[in-house]
């Protein structure tokens, strides 16, 4: 089940971030349920053919964010935190907004123009889902 994580070498982001993101997604969509045991660092490293230290780092960061809980000698599991899913994308949204702001600046857009384009994008998404 965990070998279904796909790590990309051409994705510019560090591998540990990719692993974190994909685990968060698994948790967000409920594939990895709260309280579920998750693979050990070594198991996941072997399955992904990625170094142990990279997976260890991803787990440490996920633990710090409260996504997973690691108990010594017992392995790791998904945290019982009920607010888990919505909180996961907070940081990613900030990053994307920063990126949009940078692109906007490159295109010479004023802040209010940027806001209105964001509004339009949001409305488009709502329409598509209806």
């Amino acid at each position: 089940m965990y070998s279904s994580l796909v790590i990309s070498q051409s994705d510019g982001r560090p591998m540990y971030l990719q692993i974190m993101e994909q685990i968060k997604q698994r948790v967000a969509v409920g594939e990895w349920a709260r309280g579920d045991e998750i693979p050990s660092i070594r198991q996941l490293a072997v399955a992904l053919r990625v170094s142990v230290i990279t997976v260890k780092r991803a787990y440490l960061e996920l633990e710090r964010e409260g996504v997973i809980v690691t108990q010594h000698g017992k392995g790791s599991m998904v945290a019982h935190d009920p607010d888990l899913s919505p909180r996961l994308y907070e940081q990613e949204l900030t990053e994307h907004l920063d990126h949009a702001a940078r692109l906007g600046a490159l295109l010479g857009l004023r802040p209010d123009e940027l806001t209105s384009r964001l509004k339009r994008a949001a409305q488009r998404l709502i329409k598509e889902h209806v």
Partner: peptide, 15 residues
């Protein structure tokens, strides 16, 4: 190459 890397990682399953 990927086969070889995969086998190397498999070795590391043993701590």
């Amino acid at each position: 190459r990927q086969e070889v890397l995969g086998e190397l990682m498999a070795v590391l399953a043993d701590e």
